[in-house]
Amino acid sequence: MSRIGKLPISVPDSVDVNLTDSEITVKGKFGTLQTEIPSVIAVTQEESTLKVSLKEEKNKAMHGLYRTLINNMVVGVSEQFDLTLILKGVGYRAAVQGKQLVLNLGYSHPVNIDIPAEITVEVVQNTTINLKSCDKELLGLFAANIRAWRQPEPYKGKGILYKGEQIIRKAGKSGK
């Protein structure tokens, strides 16, 4: 059995969990999330804890995965997840205009990215983008889509970085 899958999930008082045979719905102050549960996984609720177990032993890999997914749902609706992106480079800027994120990344045109309804975007000092959402999967996907426009490059260190990320720099050409 999975070491992570065995751990119980503690549910705060402010979170409501509804279980059916094939679906789990989690409601909290930051939103509502739901996911389907495969038939080999069993989820039981005992007071303020959830336990994930296997019905069949041959699908052990799903045990820890679904425990983590359900835990992320509970944490997301009670506390929210946040990610910070930093724009590094001359002339790199970001701004929120309506429901779009506008990025100036050195192209001949500004890049417009539609913001999903579940995500809150805040731009601080034109170069720092703060993202918040209760859905960790959607938040990571949106941040990866933003970052894909300018990945950090190893020579000058320019690009879109996650907060705290270190870029391993290369020396480049050496002149004779």
Rank of each mutant, 00 (worst) to 15 (best):
F81P: 00
G31K: 02
G76T: 05
G159K: 01
S174E: 15
K27R: 05
D82W: 00
K6E: 14
G98Q: 06
G164C: 07
K88R: 11
A61L: 05
I113V: 14
V124T: 13
G172I: 13
Q97I: 11
K173A: 15
S108P: 08
S78C: 00
I24K: 06
E137D: 06
N71L: 12
K136A: 14
V15E: 13
S174T: 15
L131A: 06
S10Q: 11
Q34N: 11
R169G: 09
A61T: 06
K51F: 07
T44K: 06
G164Y: 07
K170T: 15
L65T: 10
V77K: 01
L85K: 00
L83P: 02
G76K: 03
K27T: 04
N145F: 01
E23S: 09
N18M: 15
Y66I: 08
V111W: 00
K29Q: 12
L7E: 14
V26A: 06
G140N: 12
V96E: 04
S10L: 12
V52D: 06
Y162A: 09
K55Q: 05
R93F: 08
I129P: 01
T84L: 00
D114L: 15
K58V: 07
E56M: 07
V52F: 05
V74N: 08
S14R: 14
Q80N: 03
G98K: 05
T44L: 04
Y155W: 09
S108W: 10
E122N: 14
V121H: 05
E47L: 02
K163G: 02
M1V: 14
L83N: 00
K136Q: 12
I24Y: 07
K176H: 13
E165W: 09
T84H: 00
G89E: 11
N72P: 02
V102I: 15
E79T: 06
D16L: 15
E46Q: 08
I37R: 02
V26S: 05
Y107A: 07
G106I: 11
E79C: 03
V102D: 05
